[in-house]
Nucleic acid binder design. Structure first.
Length: 133
DNA sequence: TTTCTAACA
DNA sequence: TGTTAGAA
């Protein structure tokens, strides 16, 4: 579980992400506008990307290269997010720790503060742990 | 210097 | 998607 936390740690400025993904700053910001990634922000409003964000950008790039449009990419990534959520829920239920989606979110809030795919800093504080769709 | 937002001869 | 202006 600690690996997930490390992968979600906000570390890189956009210049580094541009080099790692070979995407333009415009493209990276555009994908954020479309809710495909949710990079953290510094006190000075600069974006800080995690390894999860980098992975997602690479996935987005691959899907786009395959000819899939934004709407399609969004659907695919949302499905993946839901899959991750359901897998986590299944694991937790197996351990008899929780059962409802609400309980899954509650536990996530406790264990993955700022965890990449589950935390949305673009929503009001009380709604930040809702899942995508 | 780098990054941000907003906007478009 | 690129590019640029003006601000931070």
């Amino acid at each position: 579980m600690s690996s997930k936390i490390r992968r979600s740690m906000p570390l890189f400025p956009i210049s580094t992400v541009m080099k790692l993904t070979d995407l333009s700053a415009r493209q990276i910001r555009y994908y954020e506008e479309h809710q495909l990634i949710h990079p953290e922000r510094t006190a000075g409003n600069r974006r800080l990307f995690s390894l999860y964000d980098i992975d997602r950008l690479l996935e987005i790039k691959d899907l786009l290269d395959e000819g899939i449009n934004m709407a399609g990419v969004k659907k695919i990534l949302v499905r993946e997010d839901e899959s991750v959520h359901n897998q986590l829920k299944a694991d937790l239920q197996k351990e008899k720790k929780v059962s409802s989606d609400e309980e899954v979110r509650k536990l996530l809030r406790k264990e993955f503060i700022n965890a990449g795919r589950f935390y949305r800093n673009d929503l009001p504080p009380g709604d930040r742990f809702r899942y995508f769709h």
